[in-house]
Computed example of a mutant assay.
Amino acid sequence: MAGLRDVDPRHFAALVAVHEQGTFANAADALGFTQSAISQQIAQLERAAGVTVFDRPKGPRPAELTPAGEALLDFARRTLTRLDEMDERLDLMRRGIAGRLTVGTFQSASAELLPNIIGQMRREVPDVDVRLDETDDLDELVNDVLTDETDLAFTVDLEADARLTIDVLGRDPFVIIAPRGEASGRVTTAAEIDRHPLIGQPDTHTGQRMVDDRLIAAGIRPEFVFRFQNNAAVQSMVRSGLGWAVMPSLAIDAHDPGIVVMQTDPPLPPREIQLIARTGRTLLPAADRFRAVALEAASDLFERRSLNPRARRTSR
């Protein structure tokens, strides 16, 4: 049995036009069809609905809606309005100025990169809704992209993976922070670090594992006396004189008067800050704009830091 699922939107448009124009001939002129085409569209609508929608008097009198036709007219108008609204929405999405993006992130990306990125997106495409999902578990960030839970994600030190498209945003050096008064300069050695207790994050964190791997490669056997989830807490404990910490540059507030920020000699390998998407997945055009803005914001950030090493703030 036929039903309204078999109706073409043009059939609804013909119904509305005949009612508003009064005759099949006038409706045909308004829609740019022949009169016979309009008659066929109304006939197809009536077959699908299983009811007569117009009484067709002979002579010049206008076509009259039946009670079923009146009920269907309201539905037809609402349906055509929804179709027009969806056309407009899809047009905005095609042009990259509407839609929703979900972005995975971690603390220092959220604090250092995202404010400029989100600010620029709001200025350029205010109708794009950017949702953020923050975690310090980098494996979770990758998995969420691969399972389409998020569209894009900031990550660190991923190796080439055919499943992922990876944009490199910049390289973030690891630094040592010590309580003011415990360090004599801006450079320290592995041997000096090895003589101090360390404060870090839980050893289950992928970020902390990166720190541990770099320390071990430098010949340091780290002894952690305290571990905290939040890097601000790590820095606070260092300020209190309870130990030193090894942290990414983006993760510290170098303006803190209670600490000294030091480089290592030789330097610890930097971490690579990345933005990833799943290879082969079609995203909104707004995602391309987000990626472009992220690359620009990261370039700006790392250039400023290279010119002014003390221009660092907030946490990872």
Rank of each mutant, 00 (worst) to 15 (best):
T102Q: 12
G200R: 00
R5W: 05
G200H: 02
H196N: 10
L113I: 15
R278S: 03
Q235H: 01
D172Y: 15
E112H: 11
A190G: 12
F54I: 04
R100F: 12
E46S: 01
D256H: 08
E223Q: 13
R271Y: 13
T204N: 15
D157F: 10
D148Q: 12
N116T: 14
I42K: 00
S110P: 12
V225I: 14
Q44C: 03
R78D: 10
Q208E: 11
A68G: 01
M247G: 01
S240D: 15
L15F: 02
L275Q: 08
V238K: 00
E112C: 13
E149P: 02
L132D: 02
G22A: 04
P62M: 02
A190K: 00
T279V: 06
G32D: 05
L114C: 07
T188A: 01
H255C: 12
P202K: 14
A111I: 13
T147G: 08
I97S: 13
I216C: 10
D74E: 10
R89T: 14
A160R: 10
D55E: 15
L250K: 01
I166H: 06
T314P: 06
M121T: 02
A287H: 10
D203I: 13
V156Y: 09
D8S: 06
R271I: 15
T314I: 15
V175Q: 01
F75N: 06
L45H: 01
M86Q: 15
P179A: 14
R100C: 15
D74S: 11
F302M: 06
Q120F: 07
